[in-house]
Design a protein around this nucleic acid. Structure first.
Lengths: 298, 298
DNA sequence: ACGAGCGATACCGTGGAGGTATGGATGGGC
DNA sequence: GCCCATCCATACCTCCACGGTATCGCTCGT
């Protein structure tokens, strides 16, 4: 009748992840017998068997699978609630913006300036992180708002598109295509492409990269190439060149924030960011993303 | 250090909703002193003041506001996890579909037939409910999948559009516009329109309706009129007539399900539904929703 | 000024969470 | 084939904390 206790669910999740009571108990910092009891009690309350235990192996039932998924989400939500309340509670409230190093489309300074000129602006902490970590930080309540690229998993987040950019290939200086004025995806067929950590896996093979520096280094070494939004141009290290990719799908940069957490500060910030993006779109023409570029006339 | 307990959060939410410890305690079925202590302990753990109490009035702090919002969501997620696990656990698994009485766009029988002809189909329970209850039932784990109309709040849900329909005005038989072959929104200006319970409030005034029967009755009584999707035609009671509304925005019917709960059965069902909708779109022409109608040539 | 309403405090009893010791089953090693 | 390691369940104990009752202190309405 009474709702579940978070502790019980956390215990179950630990067991379900380890598939081993002793290890799970160890991880939780408790002894194994209380853990066995707690899980059994959870099963009794739900009236459902969650784990099939032989004395040798633990496996998840269908119900267990469901509770593992949903329970994790619920626990995350609870932890995020706590963190957000804590952050909202301390005076001198901050807005934490998370982006990756080359992921701001070159608009970050402008967005920050626009927001800071708002009358009710509060301080903004900018947090740079590796690829794919943004959504995690947003969901967990560490960050309030993020600038994202690509097609990350956005469940639990609200978002708005900011900027559509054409894409460029980043190549080592002595690459066979480095001299070209433009290339197509067909030209790049067979090139190694990095897997961006945290992105939805799209089956491509290649080195896994976590931040822009790594990526640039790998490209300079000739170990991979990359297709990036036009705005990445400004971040190129010395030995790299970039070439427009004519037929690459445009890359969308968006601003995202935790679902339904529209605090006044957040709302103001989102509006400031979309305003900046709108101004930039007007300045650069309605159909294009980043500033005027040679794709327009092709 | 340790994560929050669900009980504490539930207690806090009750107090925050009532803004009165005694009433909240009563609602929770406990005495007032333990509730005071629990909330205070929660505040101590978070290191944040959630409630400003004078001995006369209780108000929420900013942090309290945040925890009220986020905590409610987290508790919902926890309860939903429990219910879904329970449902997944019982043998003879069912898929619970929720729709409102006139909300299926006339496709429900066809969708059910399509799904049931799938090799791995399981039993489908169809649950009819009042306007705006679908999203609640989906989020709370009572239902697995729903057919929705209008623009309900879809946070926490994934969805796919099924069908775009033109809209018709439903009028009492002796209404001044009842004889018209078609009307525009301007014609209907000033008419009473119902407020659909659970929809986002769009400022309209009028009686609040919870189900189709109520609505039809109110229309027949001349107390209100309504703009409904074309497919509602089939559900009209005796004394009502309907007239196409030429310039009403098309109404989108969609299928929605809890975020990230793509069980195999659900995935199959969603695919069956989208297939049916796709076939219908092809049958009726690419630009329109419900079957061919006089709007095409206007 | 007094009483009603409300939250905080003090104190107590019990249920349950967690610990230790141990049993019972299973599978791998020799 | 025997034995031991592994692993989950059971039994039993301890103690904290959750909930209850009684009461205080403050505040506002009359």
């Amino acid at each position: 009748m009474d709702g579940l206790e978070a502790r019980e669910v956390a215990y179950f999740v630990a067991v379900a992840e380890e598939l081993n009571f002793s290890r799970a108990a160890n991880r939780l910092g408790i002894a194994q017998p209380p853990l066995s009891r707690a899980v059994k009690q959870l099963e009794r309350r739900l009236g459902v068997v969650l784990l099939e235990r032989t004395s040798r192996r633990v496996t998840l039932t269908a119900a267990g699978q469901v509770l593992l998924n949903e329970g994790r989400r619920a626990l995350d939500a609870l932890a995020a609630a706590a963190r957000r309340a804590q952050r909202a509670g301390q005076q001198d409230p901050r807005l934490v913006l998370v982006t990756k190093a080359v992921g701001d489309g070159g608009m970050l300074p402008e967005i920050l300036a626009a927001y800071e000129s708002e009358p009710d602006a509060i301080k903004v902490d900018v947090l740079f992180c590796g690829f794919g970590e943004q959504t995690v930080l947003l969901r967990s309540g560490v960050a309030d708002v993020g600038l994202l690229h690509g097609r990350p998993d956005l469940t639990g987040l609200d978002f708005e598109d900011l900027l559509v950019e054409h894409q460029i290939a980043v190549l080592p200086a002595r690459h066979r295509l480095a001299g070209r004025a433009a290339v197509t995806l067909a030209d790049l067929d067979g090139e190694a492409m990095p897997r961006f950590a945290g992105m939805r896996h799209d089956g491509t093979e290649g080195p896994e990269v976590h931040d822009a520096g790594q990526l640039m280094q790998l490209i300079a070494m000739g170990r991979t190439t990359a297709i990036l939004p036009e705005s990445a141009r400004g971040y190129l290290a010395g030995d790299l060149v970039c070439v427009p990719v004519l037929d690459a799908p445009p890359s969308t940069m968006m601003i995202a924030w935790p679902e339904q957490s529209r605090s006044p500060a957040l709302a103001t910030f989102v509006r400031a960011a979309t305003d900046v993006a709108a101004r930039r779109r007007v300045r650069c023409g309605p159909d294009s993303g980043y500033d005027g570029n040679q794709l327009r006339d092709s």
